[in-house]
Design a binder for these strands. Structure first.
Lengths: 224, 224
DNA sequence: GTCTATAGGGGGATAGAC
DNA sequence: GTCTATCCCCCTATAGAC
């Protein structure tokens, strides 16, 4: 058995740990998922987490950072492609698609591939763990700024502050859809299914209408 | 010291425990809030939780059930008042107000009074603890049915399935607004504030437009 | 790099005095 | 009803052999 072969056999212990953590964090919550359960599911030893990530917190950070940067890069790549097209029809829908599709793909295989992380992301903004929340919010901030700039051009009738709120609501609807799939099954008495192919279309038309709504008449220049 | 006086002094140990639990669950998450911290904040003894609620799970259930029924009764009371008015102007906005205002009141004092519970409710649908999720979803189901029936009359152009999805997105935007207040402060670079008096107005106009949007052209009769 | 073994702490629950 | 004291479990982290 050569050194290379030996290494090859163990190259993805780290990845296995990340996969197991992602899955168990998604299912039980970050706090409730123990390192014992994670290392067991990864087929690794309890001490492996501390060796590779230093601590449970280190593992948590790694689980998020592995996916966050690619997610937001994909969003920005799609946004740039739309901008390059000039202001075509249905600009708002296309921008929303660029934002939501990477988390809520309409291709079933993609959806399953990212399901655990998507559920985790949906809860990340309300995560009690401050470090996680801060990390996600920071990564999210850059993307938000870019999307807001494009939406502001497409929706010149919406004052800046109101657009910020509308984008906040947009993020909320997406988060909820991504992390509370089960709920639609229940509250529709089985008439809707979380993993329906039409979910993304329904979501985009709903959100686009909300973003395009006339601006509020009164407020806007109170002290807030 | 009479028996009555003695009782009077201790009548609200139970309530103190519920208040402390609500506050600490909201701040740290259910799993992360320990009975030791809760009883300490309540000025009660560690054993008090087991005496009054049987277990931590019992306490969790009590924290939710104390507020859930009044919340949904208030929503239904407001909904009934709207229906009694006949189909006046801005019906969708008024229905949404009946749904959202009890959790996201525009009166600052009310908001502070229910803030902890609202944050808890916002996370409840994605709560990893199955029992909590089930309990909240069940209580929520009856309210949902009533609101959906009224919305269906106000929005006859929206097919049933699409309306279910739109209500799901509505619940998501509300949940997020209620549990992730901090986020709007950050991603707006300080230009918006979570506890702004205008939040409810912004939310209602956004959601009403989404609910009123034209129905999707294509799907609707696929196998889903 | 990976393992075993264990330290060290905190958790929920309960028995029994008052 | 409320307290103290304690049981027993599971957790994370680490030391040290391999």
């Amino acid at each position: 058995m050569s050194t290379t072969e030996t290494r090859a056999e163990h190259v993805d212990t780290r990845e296995s740990l990340l996969d197991a953590a992602e899955s168990l964090f998604s299912e039980h919550g970050i706090q409730a998922a123990s390192l014992r359960a994670i290392t067991h599911q990864a087929g690794a030893n309890l001490a492996a987490v501390n060796y590779h990530f230093g601590s449970k917190d280190g593992l948590v950070r790694a689980v998020f950072s592995r996916r966050l940067k690619p997610l937001n890069e994909e969003r920005l790549r799609r946004l740039a492609a739309i901008e390059a097209d000039g202001d075509a029809e249905r600009g708002v829908e296309r921008v929303l698609h660029a934002f939501a599709a990477p988390l809520l793909s309409s291709a079933r295989t993609d959806r399953e591939r990212i399901r655990d992380f998507a559920r985790l992301m949906g809860r990340a903004f309300s995560e009690p763990n401050e470090e996680v929340r801060g990390m996600v919010a920071q990564e999210f901030a850059e993307t938000t700024d870019r999307f807001l700039a494009v939406l502001a051009r497409l929706l010149p009738h919406v004052p800046e502050r109101e657009l910020l709120w509308r984008f906040h609501f947009t993020a909320g609807a997406l988060s909820h859809t991504v992390s509370c799939g089960h709920l639609i099954d229940e509250l529709s008495h089985g008439r809707c299914h979380a993993d329906s192919d039409a979910t993304l279309d329904y979501l985009l038309s709903f959100l686009a209408a909300g973003l395009r709504a006339p601006a509020l008449a009164a407020p806007a220049f109170q002290g807030e």
